[in-house]
Design a protein around this nucleic acid. Structure first.
Lengths: 246, 246
DNA sequence: CCTCCAAAAAATGTGCACATTTTCTACGCG
DNA sequence: CGCGTAGAAAATGTGCACATTTTTTGGAGG
């Protein structure tokens, strides 16, 4: 009997939360990966067709993403990938900067050798990726460094907030790409750890601040927009269900 | 013709976002006001009856509140008012404390006389409410003070995060009530402003920290739970639509 | 060639009818 | 008398039909 597909009877109330989740993850992933360019319209019928699920399924996921402010929902006009202004991006970076100042302030109170060791181990990874020239790993590890810092506090609220900020800024780099070269200079991360080890809050904050300002200064507005159409190719490898003939 | 009610034809796709919003606000308000006790089950049919709207309308609102983590949604088992643990509450307060440390750090850079004046004006309001013995106003103004601080930075992300934290802690006081006496000592708020005026970051943070620890220390776990049933009376004055006979 | 507008097409929003699951109830057995 | 359980009742989840709204299309007129 195995995994019988729906599509059979009429009123079918079969619960399948995994399928919701799969669609959600697929769209979210495409969003975070930057495959869905800013301004792209996400209409329900084509998505339902691509993923092979009912329209209400898509609908629910879209609204959920809208509630998380990852999509821009306009009543009666559907969902679009947000087109953040330069101020929006700055706002996210500034928020991260302010948050990290608070995190560092609190962190020097609970710091111990084990934490320093973990951070240094992470720095080693970052350096390895940098010398290896692995750009993707560098980006990932660079973000992970800041995640490590908040996670050290063990506060779920703060961790969630940072994760939200990071995911948002990762979307933005697809528009305002500081992509050119090294994202976060490992040296700057190292300086933060060093200041932490010395229990020097003021210095840690100052370094962190400079670090963020450095990143922010690389932001620039690429003229107009890339704009992406043709959802089919975006989700090509995701769900090989059925596709519309053109 | 005025406001014709739906309930008429059959398939009725009339868009009425205001009605969604009304239900959302009503439940949210009851939640923030503490009228909905922790652990209360929010079933769809009775709510639909109380508000006089379709079940799917209620459904949508419930899931939205769940996405905001204001309600606990369990698949196939509906929505409940969350029953935060003492650790959850501490986590929220700690997050607020850490955030405010960052905010103060940033704030001393952009401080000016106008801001100090505004904060002092707010302190005057707080003192007036305190001497007047207006407990409700005191609670509200006490929260507003911290809102003023973040808003001074003009960062939407930070403001939103704080609002989220505040709304969450306001729900929690209905369980772990530090309700006994003065919520936030106005003097402590005053000391923060004073430190800000002197551009003394370290002092501002120290005072803020003590302030929060002071509030947190008053938290205590009331034995078991109040538990509230009978949704009808909770939303009594909200929507005088129809009610179920018992 | 551009603009404006009406009709068609497409997309979104919503109530409803069930399917599925959970919760309640009552009965029989140890 | 407690306890597990079968059946009933209630609640949640989902597809579908259709209303409403938006967008596109195809001319007609300037």
């Amino acid at each position: 009997m195995a995994t019988q597909r729906r599509r059979n009877g009429k009123g079918n109330g079969k619960a399948n939360p995994a399928e919701d989740e799969a669609v959600y993850q697929a769209i979210l992933h495409a969003l975070l990966e930057g495959k869905l360019k800013a301004g792209t319209k996400l209409a329900e019928p084509p998505l339902a067709d691509i993923f092979g699920v009912s329209r209400e399924r898509i609908r629910k996921v879209l609204h959920r993403l809208g509630a998380e402010r990852r999509l821009e929902m306009i009543p009666n006009r559907g969902a679009r990938v947000p087109r953040p202004t330069l101020d929006d991006v700055r706002s996210v970076y500034e928020a991260h900067r302010v948050l990290e100042a608070g995190v560092l302030t609190q962190l020097v109170r609970h710091i111990d050798d084990a934490l320093i060791d973990r951070l240094n181990a992470h720095l080693a990874e970052e350096r390895a990726a940098a010398t290896r020239g692995d750009r993707a790993a560098s980006v990932r590890l660079s973000g992970a460094f800041h995640v490590h810092l908040v996670e050290a506090l063990g506060n779920a609220e703060l961790t969630r907030f940072l994760a939200d900020l990071l995911s948002r800024s990762s979307v933005m780099v697809s528009v305002y790409e500081p992509a050119t070269d090294s994202i976060c200079a490992v040296d700057e991360h190292g300086a933060i750890v060093e200041a932490l080890r010395a229990r020097d809050v003021a210095r840690a904050i100052a370094v962190s601040r400079e670090h963020f300002l450095h990143v922010e200064s690389r932001l620039h507005l690429d003229d107009v927009v890339p704009a992406s159409e043709d959802l089919g190719s975006v989700f090509a490898a995701v769900k090989p269900k059925r596709r519309k003939a053109r």
